[in-house]
Write a protein that binds this DNA or RNA. Structure first.
Lengths: 186, 186
DNA sequence: CGCCGAGTTGAACTGAATCAAGAAACGTGG
DNA sequence: CCACGTTTCTTGATTCAGTTCAACTCGGCG
């Protein structure tokens, strides 16, 4: 919780009142390996911060499980509304290790945005950061070979390989499990 | 100019003082077909709004000209810092038709963000919108065939085909000009 | 011990890239 | 308004990275 506030403070200074209001709206939850956030099958209505552990965000495409995003310690998961053919995709969040999360409801988030300018600023900065990350991914998908995409992931997120099943890595990279296996065999 | 303010107001209501300050910082420029924004070769330091016309944002990858984004009437172009292998990519903006743009310097933008909460909010909302668009593109790149990507573009931006050279469409879609040509021949 | 999910390996297939050549459209100057 | 060169687009033949399908291996767990 402290580390969360600290992290936000790095984006922009938060005043006491805002921290107080924010703290009131946050709840901490613990999930065990392979559990899902219980909000599945609902419209996503919360924002999460990962205190410890690792999760993946995924969706179903033609019945196949596609990993959209990994997040681990000190990272955020927001309801990044994914769109497919003009329609929002139902997204799910699965915990890949025992994980501690902070949760805040979207409507509480909206209220804080409205009430505190500095909080709105932090929201803007975090989203901007996410946008930049995503833009790198677009380039990777457009030009990198399977091997290059795997190596980029290794470079940017070295720990992930040991913690996450390869099938999830494969779908995240947009390649098949078989191709990933061959790439890894050098 | 009016349409610009109106458009912003749709995101969040701006007060008089903010509109006044904003207006002071905006300059209108006119560019002819094929001209470039003169800020090329510099670090991008402005934000644009397209009043009329169409532009493309592109970068060079291994000497090849890759279109990253199209923008036309009533759309924004920000310095969406693209990253490639961890390094920011120099981006260029070329006008594809005679075009009228509004320009605001980044540092003026930052001042307005700081001064007006409602302006910061608009910034957050516009970036969020961009993020959603980009997330759709990630899915398209991961799963769509060349034909499907082309059809998606046709559906979402029907006018663009007649206004933009096919080679730019091709590099935007992440396919070769030859493949695009074949796809178009049904 | 035997099952089951996860990962590996192999062979055939395919969508798109590449390379190459030609056609069509465009603009500029005579 | 036409001739010429440049740029843009099309078409064809070949190649290749990655998919698909299928069989097999490995490790954990009831």
């Amino acid at each position: 919780m402290k580390s969360f506030i600290e992290l936000l403070n790095n984006y922009a200074p938060l005043n006491e009142g805002c921290i107080k209001d924010l703290t009131k709206e946050i709840t901490e939850i613990h999930l065990l390996k392979d559990e899902h956030l219980e909000e599945n099958n609902k419209h996503p209505d919360s924002f999460y911060f990962i205190v410890e552990g690792i999760v993946r965000v995924y969706y179903l495409k033609d019945g196949k499980d596609i990993t959209d995003w990994f997040a681990s310690k000190n990272q955020f998961i927001g309801p990044i509304l994914n769109i497919y053919g003009g329609k929002p995709i139902q997204q799910y969040v699965q915990v890949l290790e025992n994980t501690t999360l902070l949760v805040i409801k979207n409507n509480a988030l909206e209220k804080l945005y409205k009430k505190y300018h500095s909080f709105e600023r932090i929201g803007r900065l975090i989203i901007t950061q996410t946008l930049i990350q995503l833009s790198e991914r677009v380039i990777a998908l457009q030009f990198y070979s399977a091997k290059e995409k795997y190596e980029l992931l290794l470079k940017e997120n070295p720990g992930i390989i040991k913690r996450v099943a390869l099938k999830h890595i494969a779908s995240y990279l947009g390649i098949t499990l078989e191709t990933l296996s061959r790439v890894r065999g050098q």
